[in-house]
């Protein structure tokens, strides 16, 4: 608990806001102010009021409720995509570093370069062309794009650890590369991975919004922030609030995650440095 008091303010704010967004997203599973599936033409394009805190869209759906469900979509897609990237990328990076200079290392690095040549949007286009658009495709596309990111970060940090004498000491004790990777390397790069994960999380939210904006992400009727922005575009001259609130939701969430990521880097880094 006492460590929380020493956290920088930006980090605290970032973590707090992220927690709130996550809580709202989870809450939308059991409760939203209004249903988000029904169409109520009588209540269409209402300005903000006590009934509809942020107003309604062109189908009469409550904007706040849609934002809450949209948070769930964005968060779920981004978390799963980062998870996929970590789950595949970190082991790849660890083994590439353990086999530094060998064929596996070469293979991982060349594979990385190849995936890096595909912009995330292009991956999403290809996947959508094959399977049709859906939120799962967005997860896959963003996840695939995350794999080389984590593989590269992991490999770079792990290589630095591999040059340390304590790795040599462990090898003298007869420990194998896999065991050393798990026992000595992974724990010492974990804070870096947490930082990278937070940053990729924020990026994932941005990319998810972009994909659903162009129709490659979550499909209606499931609300998503990007989709809401796309729908609002034809109405911005007379209902600008429809475009403003979802955008703000994205900015606030991504800003919070980036602040948390930067804060964590500063917060965790000196400890790493001192420990070395």
């Amino acid at each position: 608990m006492s460590r929380i008091r020493h956290m920088p303010r930006a980090l605290l704010v970032g973590l707090a806001v992220t927690t709130v967004v996550l809580a709202v997203a989870l809450m939308s599973l059991v409760w939203t102010p209004h249903a988000v599936t029904g169409v109520d033409i009588a209540a269409r394009l209402q300005p903000p009021s006590t009934t509809y805190l942020l107003g309604t869209d062109h189908f009469g759906r409550d904007l706040l409720s849609m934002l809450m469900v949209g948070a769930r979509t964005s968060m779920a897609v981004a978390i799963l995509a980062v998870g996929l990237g970590m789950l595949v990328g970190v082991p790849l990076g660890l083994s590439a570093a353990a086999m530094h200079g060998g064929w596996l290392d070469d293979l991982v690095m060349r594979g990385n370069d190849l995936v890096f040549a595909f912009p995330v949007l292009v991956i999403a286009i290809l996947i959508t062309a094959v399977f049709g658009p859906s939120a799962v495709n967005a997860i896959l596309a963003i996840g695939i794009f995350n794999i080389p990111v984590f593989a590269r970060v992991t490999r770079g940090a792990a290589l630095a650890i591999w040059t340390q004498d304590y790795i040599r000491a462990a090898r003298v004790c007869g420990k194998g590369r896999a065991r050393i990777s798990m026992e000595h390397v992974l724990p010492n790069i974990s804070s870096l991975l947490i930082v990278q994960g937070t940053i990729q999380f924020g990026l994932g939210i941005l990319v998810e919004a972009g994909l659903s904006y162009v129709g490659l992400g979550a499909q209606p009727p499931l609300p998503s922030w990007g989709r809401m922005l796309a729908d609002s575009q034809t109405m911005i001259s007379f209902a600008p609030q429809l475009a403003i609130f979802p955008g703000l939701a994205i900015v606030i969430t991504v800003l919070a995650l980036n602040l948390a990521g930067d804060g964590l880097r500063d917060f965790l880094d000196p400890r790493i440095r001192r420990a070395r």
Partner: peptide, 21 residues
């Protein structure tokens, strides 16, 4: 920090609102 967090297509919509509309 703010610039990184703004989705570019949303920023584009804001620009349209201000400068075009």
């Amino acid at each position: 920090q703010l610039g990184i967090a703004i989705p570019n297509f949303w920023f584009a919509m804001l620009l349209v609102m201000v400068f075009a509309i």
